[in-house]
């Protein structure tokens, strides 16, 4: 069971775009936090209601490709469905990711979305443990 108290997300600097980073005791939760960091590029994730649930599955040759795939699938689903996502439950095994994702239709008044995300990139891409033995999942997203 992950130590949820220690999990967090943050943004990091990139001149043209923005970096998203999730940090947690386990890899899957770091992926969840990275997804929250990505929603936070668009709007305040706390304002996004968990009204609708969708499932996402993806696959990658390694953890880093899997992270980029995961974030890009979320970008695709946001675009196609006109939704924003605020809650994520991820499980990872054998280079496969399965997730339940909750969110709601984007409402300009309510969510005040700042910017669309074009794609998750391989720039500053890293999935691994930091010096505090916490899992870090991060990359730059193109906006």
């Amino acid at each position: 069971m992950a130590d949820r108290k220690r999990a967090y997300w943050e943004h990091f600097e990139h001149k043209a775009d923005i970096g998203v980073r999730g940090v947690a005791a386990c890899k899957a939760e770091a992926f969840e936090q990275a997804a929250t960091a990505m929603t936070a590029v668009i709007c305040d994730p706390a304002v996004v209601k968990a009204a609708e649930q969708i499932e996402i599955c993806c696959q990658g040759d390694d953890d880093e490709i899997l992270l980029v795939d995961w974030l890009n699938r979320l970008i695709y689903e946001m675009d196609i469905r006109g939704m924003l996502f605020g809650k994520f439950e991820v499980s990872i095994g054998n280079n496969k990711l399965q997730a339940n994702v909750w969110g709601e239709k984007c409402d300009r008044q309510k969510h005040q979305p700042a910017v669309e995300i074009k794609g998750a990139t391989y720039t500053e891409l890293f999935v691994g443990k930091n010096d505090k033995e916490m899992w870090v999942a991060q990359c730059v997203v193109d906006v």
Binding site: D61, I65, I75, K118, G119, T121, D142
Partner: peptide, 17 residues
């Protein structure tokens, strides 16, 4: 728009692989 973003996303992965 979305079409270009998706082409970029998919081929970046294909080219890396």
């Amino acid at each position: 728009r979305g079409l270009g973003h998706q082409i970029g996303t998919e081929f970046l992965k294909k080219m890396a692989e």
